[in-house]
Nucleic acid binder design. Structure first.
Length: 343
DNA sequence: GGCCCTCTTTAGGGCCTT
């Protein structure tokens, strides 16, 4: 059996478990012959693995330590070296001055090691995660009654066939055409697919962009409350399941975070966090008509990359902020019990 | 609907998505 202890120390445990489960399931699917287990090592466990108890009890750390075994490439070896340095420096001294100096030096090196470790983590995670921005145009705002009428996706990695765009025939009259310009006549055409026909194509597109054994991170503005519930509803209506390795990220909280830190002088003022406002804030030129799916996806892709740069968010930070279908289902159950929905 | 903010928390208004 091959043991893989992954570098995920900065992720909350629930996210670690969720992400690790995805990776494990994917790895087993792609490499059925291999037996792989994931273990998260505490400092105590790692200490015992390294050959006994720590001699110094003066300094203790409760952070989750990581170790990397059996992974190919430079990243794995660097990770292990970093951990060794950390432990070798935990030496007890009796001279107060020396303690202070040693501690400072140790902290400096530990901080450097942590930065290195985070970079390695980010690189390894980036190899596993496919980031796809997406946007839906719908026949209204009610996720229970309204339907998706247009969909667009864009793999941020770019390359050939990195975008996906289509109108969707909802088999109903579109009453909000003034908002997006999509009319009933436009979607009521033989060549426009219905959602039940589109979902397999959508799944195939995402699969084609997915890295072997990796996960997909689908990004949308206000996705938690709009696009993702709409998408889930469409899948449910047509008896499809959202793939277990799909994670979702809402850029609205990121926009709030950016504006909080960048526009301190306007904290008390009303700041718009809409996608178009964020586009203007970053001086990104509009491409196509706003409120059409592909145009909004183009905008979102650029805004998203600018925001992650501003917030210094590595891939691990994105995973930390992501959510899955099951997270929304739990919330929806609570809500529906409290207030029955009406169309 | 969920989240955030404030003249709040025993609440209410506004934003964001179409």
């Amino acid at each position: 059996m091959r043991t893989v202890a992954m570098c995920l120390s900065i992720l909350p445990r629930c996210r670690i478990h969720s992400f690790a489960s995805s990776c494990l399931e994917n790895s087993q699917r792609h490499h059925p012959g291999n037996r792989i287990s994931l273990r998260f090592l505490s400092s105590k466990t790692l200490s015992s693995l390294e050959g006994g108890e720590q001699k110094s009890k003066k300094w203790t750390r409760k952070s989750i330590m990581t170790n990397t075994e059996g992974l190919k490439g430079d990243g794995a070896s660097k990770s292990k070296i970093s951990n060794n340095i950390k432990y070798n420096l935990s030496v007890e001294t009796t001279d107060g001055l020396n303690v202070e100096k040693s501690e400072t030096r140790e902290l400096d090196i530990i901080q450097n090691c942590d930065v290195q470790q985070k970079m390695i983590e980010s690189e390894e995670l980036a190899r596993l995660v496919t980031v796809i921005s997406f946007d839906l145009e719908t026949s209204g705002l009610n996720r229970s009654c309204d339907c998706v009428i247009e969909m667009a996706m864009q793999d941020l990695a770019g390359g050939k066939n990195s975008t996906f765009q289509t109108l969707v025939n909802p088999d109903c009259v579109i009453k909000n055409s003034e908002f997006h310009g999509i009319t009933t006549d436009m979607v009521n055409q033989p060549h426009v697919p219905r959602m039940k026909d589109l979902i397999p194509i959508l799944l195939a597109y995402v699969k084609s962009r997915q890295k072997p054994g990796g996960i997909v991170l689908l990004v949308a503005h206000n996705g938690r409350n709009f696009d993702v519930p709409f998408l889930i509803n469409e899948f449910n209506r047509n008896n499809f399941d959202i793939p277990h390795d799909w994670h979702f990220l809402d850029t609205l909280p990121l926009a709030r975070e950016v504006m909080k830190s960048k526009v301190a002088e306007l904290k008390s003022a009303k700041i718009s966090l809409s996608l178009q406002s964020m586009r203007e804030y970053y001086n990104i030129a509009p491409i196509g008509s706003a409120h059409r799916a592909m145009s909004d996806v183009n905008t979102l892709s650029q805004v998203f990359q600018r925001m992650t740069f501003d917030l210094k968010l590595p891939t691990s930070g994105l995973i930390e902020r992501s959510f899955r279908q099951s997270d929304l289902v739990k919330t929806a159950k609570k809500t529906s019990q409290a207030r029955p929905k009406k169309c």
